[in-house]
Design a protein around this nucleic acid. Structure first.
Length: 566
RNA sequence: UGUCCGAUGGUGUAACUGGCAACACGUCUGAUUUUGGUUCAGAAGAGUCCAGGUUCGAGCCCUGGUCGGACAACCA
């Protein structure tokens, strides 16, 4: 049998990282092992961009029967907090990935890193520089002009070692000295101009406490951490591309085995109309422009989770956007599509009225009620059926009625008929308004024979609308998050303008609505479709018994409003 | 007057050792539908940044440009 025909559908082509990995495997590099890692700095919450990296790294590990580590890059104690460590672990797990027993911290390697630093000093590959940060910075030159060598550059190794040990012992104040790699101050690559390896910081570290007052820089720590963990493919974003020569330089000076981790860079995710910088997200949180890192408007994993996204939908999204090296801006519509696709299969269809308008069915007997059968999910027969109460007074959605309907409006209007889903066909007989002319109530009549399953159930009307029985319905707060958190695409905003002036003022709308009574004990993990109005989930943080709060995950694809928008 | 990287429909990603530019999202049409959802059928939309070259044949190879991005924290 032909191998290609064993699988249905087209053979999926490899992305460029997979091609590199497969070539390495063919060449038996690192014994053909594949071992990746996800290395966040615990200085913020994970966002959808990190999700791309997580799916990539863990996905590659799985695809090539390899392993994937979780490693916290905690080399800067002034910026990192335990709260972030915990949220990151929670988010990675929620996304559906497992690092098993391979949870590491760069700080686990401080001793080894220090030892290697002494080796570099003794080999004449590193020196202690007594200059200030400003002096060093001035000597670094510019991308087009070479730098100048430090006056301390040729100090002899023993003296350097002595000084470095004293740095470690706390003999010097912050900023007074650094350890630098001795490479090439004239290198066209700025990162090779004697980069700083260690700086003095008399700051306790979350994990090592007061043990250290010197801390390694990213460039010195990262490759060596990869090496220690046996990482084969160290995948990072494009801005580290220019660091790669340095990554390799340290490894070459320190390690004398065949085995080498290999750094591969890919383009980070950009989403249209979405703030994606940790710094800016932190600013929104600190200035309380959002309710927290998990505000449903935030593109954070926790925000998306609270908003009702599923891990599957995010994984599918990550799969669809692919991996490449060119800068990209993914349309948020693709993210929304990924959620809808998943939720369409899973979400229970329920009645939920967001902006209620009362309807009295004048010919329905007062005080009478009946239970009507409703289908839980037409996409999934196993989801079953349920009964919902119907009575003389109901609520419908305000915009399901128009006094002056435009052409092609299929729903309720004066003298027009519409079907109440799972119930009867009703006809609008009278519109009641208050003194200001606002519509407060509709008077309708119903056609008894058109009840679902009844003798005239087959009678066709143009529209079907949703409703809840006024007497039975549960009041609920419904939060509508606009699809756009920003008014304009970030790169279209004027240079120098504060990004916060670009926030969409309509990004959150809070409504008092009603949902059907069965939702009283709704589970935050369950997803619902309020038919024709979108996907919703119970807000896990703000809902209390008897006071339901729903977040709208995403609206339905809606050709009527698209038509209106034109 | 630097180094590194990139350039394929509106968006993203493909095209194996050169062989009719494919897939997804989006857009539009039509059918079905007790959700203007879903599903189904279909359409439009690029000739691959430019100029040369090699070749029977170039998105892929070569040369030279153009445009865009990254790099001058004791951040990661």
């Amino acid at each position: 049998m032909n191998i290609k025909e064993e699988h249905t559908g087209p053979v999926k082509s490899l992305n460029f990282i997979e091609s590199i990995i497969e070539e390495d495997i063919r060449n038996n590099k690192n014994d053909s092992r594949v071992h990746t890692r996800f290395p966040p700095e615990p200085n913020g919450y994970l966002h959808i961009g990190h999700a791309k990296s997580i799916c990539l790294n863990f996905g590659l590990g799985k695809k090539y029967n390899g392993l994937t580590n979780l490693r916290f890059d905690d080399t800067n104690p002034t910026k990192e907090e335990e709260e972030y460590v915990n949220s990151i672990m929670e988010d990675v797990r929620w996304l559906g990935f497992d690092w098993e027993d391979r949870l590491f911290y760069a700080s686990d390697y401080f001793d080894q890193l220090y030892e290697w630093a002494e080796k570099l000093i003794l080999d004449g590959n590193a020196y202690v520089d007594d200059q200030t940060a400003e002096e060093i910075s001035q000597q670094r030159g510019t991308p087009t002009r070479p730098g100048k060598e430090s006056p301390f550059r040729d100090r002899d190794p023993q003296a350097n070692l002595e000084l470095f040990r004293r740095m470690k012992n706390g003999d010097f104040p912050d900023g007074s000295r650094v350890l630098r790699a001795k490479i090439d101050m004239a290198s066209p690559n700025m990162h090779m101009r004697d980069p700083v390896m260690y700086r003095i910081m008399h700051t306790p570290h979350d994990r090592t406490g007061d043990k250290w007052c010197i801390y390694p820089m990213y460039d010195y720590a990262h490759g060596q951490s990869d090496y220690i963990e046996g990482i084969t493919h160290s995948i990072c974003t494009l801005e580290f591309e220019i660091h790669r020569p340095l990554y390799d330089w340290f490894l070459d000076k320190i390690i004398d085995t065949e085995y080498r981790p290999r750094q591969i860079e890919f383009a980070r995710l950009n989403l249209s109309y979405t703030v994606m910088s940790k710094r800016k997200l932190l600013e929104l949180v600190k200035e309380k422009l959002v309710s927290g890192w998990d505000d449903p408007r935030m593109p954070t994993v926790s925000g998306l989770r609270r908003r009702g996204f599923t891990p599957e939908s995010i994984r599918n999204f990550a799969d669809r956007i692919g991996v490449a090296k060119r800068d990209n801006v993914i349309d948020v519509a693709l993210l929304e599509h990924s959620v809808r696709e998943d939720l369409n299969k899973k979400a229970m269809r329920v009645m939920g009225v967001i902006d209620p308008l009362k309807v009295v069915i004048t010919n329905y007997p007062e005080g009478e009620e009946e239970a009507l059968e409703a289908i839980n999910n037409p996409e999934d027969e196993s989801a079953g059926k349920r009964m919902i109460p119907f009575s003389r007074e109901i609520y419908i959605e305000r915009d399901d009625f128009m006094e002056d309907p435009p052409r092609k409006f299929f729903r309720l209007a004066p003298e027009r008929e519409v079907r109440l889903r799972y119930a009867y066909i009703i006809k609008c007989e009278e519109v009641i308004k208050d003194a200001d002319g606002n519509i407060t109530e509709l008077r309708c009549t119903y056609d008894k024979d058109t009840r679902s399953g009844g003798p005239a159930a087959g009678r066709k009307v143009k529209g079907t609308i949703h409703w809840v029985s006024a007497e039975h319905a549960l009041p609920a707060e419904i939060r509508i998050y606009d699809r756009l958190f920003l008014k304009e695409n970030p790169d279209e905003v004027e240079e120098g303008k504060d990004f916060k002036s670009n926030l969409n003022p309509d990004s959150l709308e809070v409504r008092k609505g009603y949902v059907e009574p069965g939702l009283a004990d709704a589970d935050p993990a369950s997803r619902y479709q309020f038919e024709r109005r979108g996907y919703f989930c119970v807000d896990s943080r703000d809902s209390k018994p008897g006071a339901l709060v729903f977040n709208r995950t995403v609206p339905l694809r809606d050709s009527w409003s698209r038509m209106q928008g034109k």
